[in-house]
């Protein structure tokens, strides 16, 4: 409804935090305690974040975010523009490393391994935690080469048939295979927006990641393509741990099992999606969900 205003595209590409003048901002970020509601039946935790702060130069974009991300479930990050949800998502596979002047404090673990351990190779990490971006960004190569890109650079296929199998499997998992099976060797940029985004998902799946991060994957798509992607996300949940940033609360409600609400760089509240949308514990969550701001 009224929350579907597209978030500034720049936000995710350069991730410079936009200071939102919000009249409802009453308390200082420090010392704030996130309100947490556990799942009725607790799921195993895959990713665990502890007091994560992010700075861009001298500006702080995230304040002491702590969260557990459960496996084989979809966790949605919601919140108004500039609240830090994308910034936090990018911390999870260290994409913030690519931004000059960005600094991350705190601890994030995947299966207990510290992601920011200097000994850890970010290449290996990103192969385990894949990412899908806001705007479909297939490479200007053929569909086949797009999907084969990951397996090729990581050396995952032992033979040509092996590689072909991985590509076909990935396209099938991204429910794109049937649409493109006759034109695997045409350019990927020639597909429709929704197909391109599914191609990007297939590309991410091809390296068999354990976690898939999705940064507003549908914000550039029309409703029909969006519905397809949402369907796909629901299917992928069986095998992957998924984190999705979304601007649309309906989408969060449709696809996710858990929801985290960010505001002004703070994780305000997190809990089971159903509960978050029906009886949030925090006033600000309530206000956001009912459309009083954002």
């Amino acid at each position: 409804m009224m929350f579907n205003a597209p978030e500034s595209q720049k936000m995710n590409t350069n991730a410079a935090p936009v200071a939102i003048a919000d009249p409802k901002k009453v308390d200082l970020p420090t010392g704030f305690k996130t309100v947490r509601t556990p799942d009725p039946e607790p799921r195993p935790v895959r990713v665990h974040a502890d007091d994560v702060c992010v700075f861009y130069g001298s500006k702080q974009a995230l304040f002491d975010v702590s969260i557990d991300i459960p496996e084989k479930a979809v966790t949605a990050f919601i919140g108004p523009s500039g609240c830090g949800k994308s910034t936090f998502l990018r911390c999870l596979n260290r994409m913030n490393d690519t931004i000059e002047g960005a600094r991350v404090e705190g601890k994030i673990t995947l299966d207990g391994e510290d992601l920011y351990d200097p000994k850890l190779d970010v290449v290996e990490l990103r192969a385990r935690i894949g990412m899908v971006f806001q705007k479909p960004n297939p490479f200007p190569k053929t569909i086949f080469e797009n999907v084969a890109y990951g397996p090729r650079i990581h050396g995952l296929a032992r033979s040509k048939t092996d590689l072909e199998q991985i590509v076909v499997e990935s396209l099938k998992k991204a429910s794109l295979f049937n649409e493109v099976k006759d034109r695997l060797h045409e350019v990927g940029t020639g597909l429709s927006g929704g197909q391109q985004q599914r191609l990007c998902i297939a590309r991410a799946i091809a390296v068999s990641p354990e976690v898939i991060l999705m940064d507003e994957p549908c914000s550039a798509l029309d409703p029909i393509a969006t519905a397809k992607i949402e369907e796909l996300i629901d299917e992928l949940r069986a095998n992957y741990t998924i984190v999705i940033v979304t601007h649309s609360m309906q989408q969060a409600a449709r696809v996710s099992q858990r929801t985290a609400f960010f505001h002004l760089g703070i994780l305000v509240e997190e809990g089971p999606t159903e509960m978050m949308f029906t009886s949030p514990a925090e006033k600000r969550t309530q206000d956001y969900i009912t459309g009083r701001f954002g």
Binding site: E71, D111, E124, A127, R128, H154, S208, P209, E210, N239
Partner: peptide, 11 residues
């Protein structure tokens, strides 16, 4: 889990 088992050789 199943998924990490599948990706173990990849890792």
């Amino acid at each position: 889990t199943a998924s990490s088992a599948a990706s173990a050789p990849n890792r």
